[in-house]
Amino acid sequence: MRTPRTTWRTRARTAVAAAALTMAATLTAPLAHADGAAPPVLTDGFGLTQVAGGTEVHSATDFTITVTTPQVAGKHKIRIFLPSGYRTDPGKRWPVTYFLHGGGGTVDDAAAAPALRSDSMITVVPDAGLKGWFADWVMQNTAEGAANWETFHLEQVVPFIDANLRTVADRDHRAVVGLSMGGFGALHYGEARPDLFGHVASLSGGIDFGMAEVRAAVLATELNLTGAWCAVSTSTPSGTGQCTGYGPMVDSDAIFGSPYPVLNADRVWKAVDPAAPVNLAKLAETDVTLYTGDNDVIDHFTAIAARNVKTRMDTLGLPSRLVDYGDGSALAPTCDGGHNYGCWAPALADYIPRLQDSFGTAG
């Protein structure tokens, strides 16, 4: 007996639907590393949408997701280092450190600092753009498009991580650490949200907006003037500094408005200046550590900025720790006292164990 044509059509449609479901499951399922480990399945939320196929699995404890958000134009990566015991101890919650990369850098720069891969904490490395400067930009209609980096990081990434990973979601167990451009970001975020971060560390940071040289560095990124700041503030997997620029040129007033101190035109710069006493006072209950060299044209100025911050915190009666390693000889054989990962990696190797102890003391 001949099978009715409608039956064949039904079977064909069923087969197509099954194939589509299989393909969809394949596209959305987490990838596995060669050792068979798959990253945790994260759920969209807080304005973040994960890009299908945008997950990279580097190892059993190291993976990167790609997200989109209306707050920042384009696709953006978030790299996550898990402690080795994260999967084997499913009842345990972990402190979190947010690592902020430098100008011209990417989330993969974190691989140049082995200390960030800690078995005592989760490390989260959010994209900060080539020149995001951890700010909600004054101008949102530049070639960069939407650029609300501060909102992206503090109001989206932080709660997204707490909702999806087993974190200890309080300030005593949350740190923000950054270098160069990210050094500004770390101190600024600590001041902007002391309710979120109990620990702050800035390495070779542009942390004094009262200095013309620091403002000039921001302007150089806006105008895509590549030079020493760009060349050594990022890292290839081998640890060698290299970058190709800061992206498309934007107006010199795009990020913080006019930098010129005339008729209060620079009011945004002053409002977010990490070295301003009114902002430093917000760190009264925060552990603050500053690192800097003083042996090249860049860290000569970051050293001045760090000393200014330290002096003002001392005047305010606020504890802080400044490690000025000068030419680097006392820090590590790889450090020349300059603005590079040869110094930042050993500085982080000094800092992270201290941070882990602080997390442990907090309970």
Score class of each variant (00 low, 15 high):
residue 123 T to E: 10
residue 316 L to G: 07
residue 333 P to N: 06
residue 242 Q to G: 00
residue 48 L to A: 05
residue 137 W to S: 06
residue 98 Y to G: 09
residue 344 W to A: 11
residue 210 G to E: 05
residue 305 A to F: 03
residue 229 W to H: 04
residue 172 D to F: 00
residue 312 R to Q: 11
residue 75 K to E: 15
residue 88 T to N: 11
residue 231 A to E: 09
residue 241 G to C: 03
residue 294 D to H: 14
residue 330 A to M: 12
residue 293 G to L: 02
residue 179 L to M: 10
residue 145 G to V: 06
residue 35 D to W: 11
residue 188 H to G: 02
residue 140 Q to V: 03
residue 331 L to T: 06
residue 22 T to H: 12
residue 91 G to I: 01
residue 97 T to L: 14
residue 219 L to D: 10
residue 332 A to Q: 07
residue 35 D to N: 14
residue 215 R to V: 08
residue 344 W to F: 09
residue 167 T to M: 06
residue 91 G to L: 10
residue 266 D to N: 14
residue 160 F to L: 02
residue 260 Y to K: 01
residue 65 I to C: 05
residue 280 L to R: 05
residue 251 D to Q: 07
residue 171 R to E: 05
residue 16 V to Q: 05
residue 313 M to N: 08
residue 58 H to P: 00
residue 344 W to K: 09
residue 235 S to M: 03
residue 144 E to Y: 03
residue 102 G to W: 06
residue 103 G to V: 10
residue 249 M to T: 14
residue 211 M to D: 11
residue 119 D to A: 12
residue 192 A to P: 00
residue 307 R to P: 00
residue 39 P to K: 11
residue 117 R to I: 10
residue 94 W to A: 02
residue 46 F to I: 00
residue 217 A to L: 12
residue 79 R to Q: 12
residue 70 P to Q: 12
residue 121 M to P: 01
residue 235 S to Q: 01
residue 204 S to F: 02
residue 239 G to A: 08
residue 256 F to L: 15
residue 227 G to H: 00
residue 67 V to H: 04
residue 120 S to G: 12
residue 301 F to W: 15
residue 362 A to Y: 00
residue 285 E to R: 15
residue 145 G to S: 09
residue 129 G to K: 07
residue 203 L to W: 06
residue 204 S to A: 13
residue 228 A to E: 09
residue 180 S to V: 05
residue 333 P to W: 06
residue 353 P to N: 13
residue 85 G to H: 01
residue 220 A to R: 12
residue 69 T to E: 01
residue 335 C to F: 08
residue 185 G to L: 04
residue 90 P to E: 12
residue 129 G to V: 03
residue 41 V to I: 15
residue 174 R to E: 09
residue 34 A to M: 12
residue 242 Q to P: 00
residue 263 L to F: 14
residue 45 G to A: 12
residue 341 Y to T: 07
residue 322 L to F: 08
residue 352 I to A: 06
residue 124 V to G: 06
residue 43 T to Y: 01
residue 320 S to T: 13
residue 165 L to S: 05
residue 43 T to Q: 13
residue 264 N to Y: 13
residue 53 G to K: 10
residue 341 Y to F: 15
residue 74 G to Q: 04
residue 164 N to C: 03
residue 305 A to C: 07
residue 211 M to H: 04
residue 101 H to A: 08
residue 331 L to A: 05
residue 134 F to H: 15
residue 24 A to I: 14
residue 33 H to L: 07
residue 102 G to D: 12
residue 38 A to S: 15
residue 163 A to S: 15
residue 114 P to W: 06
residue 344 W to I: 07
residue 323 V to F: 09
residue 296 D to C: 10
residue 297 V to E: 15
residue 166 R to I: 03
residue 205 G to W: 02
residue 168 V to Q: 14
residue 149 W to H: 11
residue 144 E to P: 01
residue 57 V to R: 02
residue 300 H to Q: 12
residue 82 L to I: 04
residue 183 G to K: 12
residue 275 A to C: 06
residue 61 T to R: 13
residue 281 A to N: 05
residue 193 R to S: 05
residue 136 D to G: 01
residue 252 S to H: 04
residue 261 P to Q: 09
residue 294 D to K: 12
residue 23 M to C: 15
residue 109 D to M: 04
residue 80 I to Q: 04
